[in-house]
């Protein structure tokens, strides 16, 4: 199950602006996100993705694989970002 090239959706931005505003409302219903803050969150997300993918590719290479897999990303997320995503336990990833 590998990727095929696809056309970007929406405005080509990494974040769905509407969902981002909904996310802010979920955290605090009284809060609003201005344009500068929105842009900054976009930039931070982009930097995060750059960091995770680059490091995870090195882990895939270390496995002598030519495929970036979820287990590479999971390992980097746990070791460097202390992020665990439910539904991606070690047992599921290893199989």
């Amino acid at each position: 199950q590998f990727l095929t090239p696809s056309v970007p959706e929406n405005d080509g931005k990494i974040l769905n602006k509407q969902r981002l505003h909904e996310l802010v409302k979920e955290v605090d219903p009284t809060e609003q996100l201005d344009e500068d803050a929105e842009e900054m969150l976009m930039q931070i997300t982009d930097d995060f993705i750059e960091n995770v993918v680059a490091a995870s590719c090195e882990l895939a290479r270390h496995r002598k694989s030519n495929t970036l897999e979820a287990k590479d990303i999971k390992l980097h997320l746990e070791k460097h970002w202390n992020i665990t995503v439910p539904g991606y336990s070690s047992d599921e990833i290893r199989t």
Binding site: L3, L23, I49, A54, S56, L77, V85
Partner: peptide, 25 residues
């Protein structure tokens, strides 16, 4: 940019999307 990496598994994309959402929250 990483030599030899030619494919990205779809589960890797889904995991990173969830992780990015966690980071944003």
């Amino acid at each position: 940019r990483t030599p030899n990496i030619q494919n990205i598994h779809t589960e890797a994309v889904k995991l990173l999307a969830c992780a990015a959402e966690t980071r944003l929250k």
